[in-house]
Design a protein around this nucleic acid. Structure first.
Lengths: 203, 203, 203, 203
DNA sequence: AATGAATGAGCCTTCATTCAT
DNA sequence: CATGAATGAAGGCTCATTCAT
């Protein structure tokens, strides 16, 4: 990309970032069209290519930006050493909801990167996602599985909780915008139930 | 569509059905290209249009076929009145795995229909899916929630189990083919855990 | 072409001839589709190519047949030496109407050949038409222009009468079938007027 | 259509208009290919669709433009109240010849619209033609038929004159370009003859 | 820097033609 | 002889990318 992008007024930068992110997040790499971005961001077609060379370059920048920004916020919010599994995960999602106030499509973009299937961009999507995944896993290391109920393993727990959160996130975007309130409320309900059943009753 | 399709040798019918289903299931309606199907099924471009008029017609046929075939098998397998929530759901997924032996992309196609976002075909995808959803819900009616552990509601259970199965299914397709063994084994592990924690200990 | 065509039952021959002629006459060479002929004649696609090699071969045969058949009838009807310009021309059109009872699209096909613009077949269309044009001109040689009104030349007369008849013929086909009655009646009305004005009043 | 078309340099607009008009006029709607237009106008394929959405949109624009431009000129030229039938008609054709200096295919396009048979565009062709037909008919209302020779009716006259002019027009395009001189000269010769014979000698 | 006109490769679809049965 | 399934080249249309202004 062309670093002069950062010389643009912050306002215009964000208009472009949000526009591209929205289109990529909603449609995925291949179906995201430059015309859509032009419409959504109100920025001419040529400019995207001026700063980002091509569609792949733009995707790379956006996915990178997305994760870096989110991780910055996570670094702050996760710094208070929480030890409960669900509290940690809730903080992660709460942080996404908070980031969504400035970049409304960050949570969906993260999701979209996970789901990305286009061969041309697959590698980029997955690699940019890594730092986020690592950050979350790192935070979860503070949690010890000693207290898990009989038959519950950390592996199975990670899996079902991960998939469920993903599902709830998709649901929260169902009408084209991210409904933070509903999203967090759904997660709280779910986590409350889970807390009731996955922890050992003993002690 | 052109009903003469059914006069073709069963082998060729299945080659075309599997080819189209694979491409639709893997890429979704919009990104599924006839060229891909030509390559995968080894059948010339013109022939698809000869039998199915256009891409939408082909999708309609495939999604319809997919659900009808699956429902036929479900009708058999779900006839034994099981009463356990997880047993019923396991039977459903087991049936999909069984169908996958003949049509390897049926489970993924069902998934793809649920996820389909293209406006042109949305209505078709969702409407064809209905009979399947109804079949499953009908089978679940035999289950009563009386025995659920404290804090566990049927609604939350449906949600998390649904999302988790979906996640496992996607995982089972990760290398382009459906790994039935892994899929069912994953589900069994998950269900075993769930049985341990969602049912009330009393009684 | 494959001469074995003539070994077919006359009935089938005519079904094919009429079918092809109809489609060629109504749509012109390029827009005439083999599928249309299949539908109209009820004869399988392969058979057309079996007997006529390709579309151009079929057109060549049909246009040839059309003119030859018409000229045969003209030879009979024009044998009575008429000497009036309009009577001769009326006989020509009457003959077409008569031929149309067996081959309903002969008049339109003749027309279509005159109008044909497709480069691939232009030469064929025009060359096959020649014998018909010559036959008509030959018949008109019996007419002497001595009696024409002041200012009327044979050249101008040929021109305007030719274009007018062509116009009336197109009109007679307006609803997809040839309306012989209307066609001849229109021509009679027109000729009656012309007789009144193009002949010299003197003598 | 995209109104930005009119922001193009007049020169380019005309290159595109003339190119499309030529191909539509010579081949008719169905057989007019965008590839032909690309060759004739030297303008890339995508651009036609950028401005006119699709082939039908382009046809609509061209036929509309054609009639509007012609009618504008007719409004000027027919404003001098002529009362002779043939003088009025000559003025109409003279105007077409004059328009042909800027848009050489306008006369042929008008013709082509009258002859158009493609179902998809039929309605458009006929409806766009109406204002022109009305303009001509309106001008002809100044003419009274009192002076017509015996046996000559206005109806028959309109018919034969109409068909003859159409024929001459087609002839004037025979080598792919419009030969104005020949066209008008042919019409003059024809009209001179007609004036001699269709008007009553009395008075 | 910013715009959007312009391009052409690629996809869906049609249709003359071939060929196995 | 007859059929119609099968093919692929060509036409309409979309969209990432280029480039003159």
């Amino acid at each position: 990309m062309n670093d002069k992008f950062f010389d643009l007024k912050k306002e215009k930068q964000d208009k472009m970032i949000n526009g591209a992110m929205q289109v990529f997040a909603l449609k995925g790499y291949k179906l995201a069209s430059t015309d859509d971005m032009v419409k959504v961001a109100g920025v001419s077609k040529g400019l995207w290519f001026h700063y980002f060379v091509n569609k792949a370059g733009l995707y790379t920048f956006i996915s990178d930006y997305c994760v870096k920004y989110l991780n910055m916020e996570l670094a702050v919010n996760l710094s208070l050493k929480r030890t409960d599994y669900f509290d940690i995960l809730y903080t992660v999602e709460e942080t996404k909801a908070q980031v969504a106030k400035i970049y409304p499509f960050v949570p969906m973009m993260i999701q979209s990167m996970e789901d990305e299937k286009d061969e041309e961009i697959l590698e980029v999507a997955k690699s940019r996602l890594l730092p986020y995944t690592e950050k979350v896993n790192e935070a979860l290391e503070n949690f010890t599985d000693e207290k898990l109920a009989k038959g519950v393993t950390r592996e199975l727990l990670d899996m079902t909780v991960g998939y469920t959160i993903k599902g709830l996130r998709e649901k929260a975007y169902q009408n084209g915008e991210f409904d933070s309130e509903k999203y967090l409320s759904d997660i709280r309900d779910y986590f409350e139930m889970m807390k009731n059943i996955v922890y050992s009753n003993e002690g």
